[in-house]
Design a protein around this nucleic acid. Sequence first.
DNA 1: CCATTTTGTGGGAACGCTCCCACAATTGGT
DNA 2: ACCAATTGTGGGAGCGTTCCCACAAAATGG
Lengths: 342, 342
Amino acid sequence: MKHQVTIIDIARQLNISKSTVSRALTGHPRVKEATRRAVLDLAGQLDYQRNMLAINLSSSRSKTIGIIVPEFVTSFFPIVIMGAQEVASESGYTVLICQSNETYEAEVANAKVMLANRVDGVLVSLTRETKNFEHLAMFTRKAIPLVLFNRVCYDIEVPKVVVNDYEGAFNATEHLILTGKKRIAHLAGPQSLYISRKRLEGYKDALRKYNLPADDELVISYDLDLGKARMYVKHLLDQPQPPDALFAVNDPTALEALLLIKERGLSIPDQIAVVGFSNDYGSSLIEPGLTTIAQPTREIGRVAAQLLLEQTNTDASTWKPVTRVLKTELLIRGSSVQGASK
Amino acid sequence: MKHQVTIIDIARQLNISKSTVSRALTGHPRVKEATRRAVLDLAGQLDYQRNMLAINLSSSRSKTIGIIVPEFVTSFFPIVIMGAQEVASESGYTVLICQSNETYEAEVANAKVMLANRVDGVLVSLTRETKNFEHLAMFTRKAIPLVLFNRVCYDIEVPKVVVNDYEGAFNATEHLILTGKKRIAHLAGPQSLYISRKRLEGYKDALRKYNLPADDELVISYDLDLGKARMYVKHLLDQPQPPDALFAVNDPTALEALLLIKERGLSIPDQIAVVGFSNDYGSSLIEPGLTTIAQPTREIGRVAAQLLLEQTNTDASTWKPVTRVLKTELLIRGSSVQGASK
DNA sequence: CCATTTTGTGGGAACGCTCCCACAATTGGT
DNA sequence: ACCAATTGTGGGAGCGTTCCCACAAAATGG
């Protein structure tokens, strides 16, 4: 292993102290211009790279924020991460990303990694399994800012970034009703997730507003394991009185549904209309295009990171568990309205 | 800021030295079982979290591998990252992810972040702009293992993980020829990327093998900026003798082409067939399905990480710049053969 | 021109850990 | 019972920084 260039090497060569080198490098004002120049020049020549490990240890902050997401398969989380990363790097923060693979154990393990790496803050979106929040409470207890996004819970008092899931779901359902649908099914997410519950509520309230019966047979909650989506859609379609529309908890689920429906040769949207949630990549590719509730994915990441950085710079006692609700938008495509634009 | 629990706290409370606590915590064999128990118990009680910053500084290794990818938008890189992460975490490594946004500047900046964080190794896929490799040579010079994947270059001698781009492109083109196509266009990537050159070669050699003329008008190299793809496809289609098939450098490009072709109402694959490269998410959703060269995306990440970890454990002098070539597979869908399965 | 402030520099503790060296305590073989 | 090997523990240097304190040199002001 080759010797790493340190500030001491620079100090020795210039016959000055390491304190001065450190000051020159960090832009401390009390350094003679000539000295600063010399240090910077030599640092460049020697390929000096500041050792963040040492800096972080010394300053007990890592200038790193952690992000824990449940999965990486759908395009949603990567894009959120991009947004968060943009904001973080503007403020000189790097980002440590972990994915929990939708399991509680991995999420807890990831939380420990964050703690061990002394991140200055954490952005978390829960797995579908997470029901215990002790590992998250730990962050707060250790005065490490935490912001939840997308898959949030209300069991701990921290800032959250969500979209208006209730309204989005309401609008999606209302849209289906207004196109004349009477038996609207809902393939919901796990009720352990707040986000799933809200979407279900929006769906139900829309039905209520238009005096449509809420048939329990038409609502299925599933664990978001895409492999199973098909099965549940089948179950819905095979009922004695099949639905004439389907509102799915997210786009990947809706796309699975659309594929199955196409295989069966049902006409879309006449015999059955489909609406998703999120406007993922792929939703505009399929034919007919998937009507969906578009959410500002990248913006979710940006706002979450902003909220987090605000906290890192202030005392823990001033933290307020604000919930930032971003707007969604109904995007009408062919899966709900014949010949709708893309 | 609350006081962080350290091994010294534990040592004091148990009336032993910090050395012993350290040994108990790290599983050193020379610790009495009773002592180990006591330490572990107390550590649990106090919510002790080992400080990786200190550990890394002390041991001058971070147990972290860095990954630099050009973008996050297509599903390709997130999936590669998943694969790499799997392998890394099996060996107790965490992963630091940076994306370069397809710009050379960001790539260089990211390389510095990696260096500053003293990663034990780096996985890199180049941006479309990268023509200077000084920032990468730096890793080798500092004896930090580096593995290139997907977007590789041969200007520096390091291990690489690629797929058989030449063969894949050859097979794609041959497939089009065998379905009777005569004027096959190729929308290529930037020739600065080795991967693009190889795919172009494969395309050309296939034409040659079947004695088809290589018409320069039918080959366009572009910078992979998807926003421009449409324009180039238009250009190809608007020629006096338009092509009867298109082989695109990657799936997102092919999908853009497919969309434009559909808009124009040309019949696919009769009037024009399309083949992509990669089998991204979305390629099976579009109609007709996109014929493509499937690559083992997740496996690319796994193999790259394995190659990297092999290096981290051995002396720099023994490193061999092996190139691991993974296999691709021609996936025939409706965009090249009428009614082909999905 | 001397007292006072400002500017530039050096010395060294601290951050929390690992790991080498020294040494005490225990064990084992004869 | 005695010396050697083994086991368990403590002490302290070192990792590469930052940052506080001390202090010399230069600038400022009446």
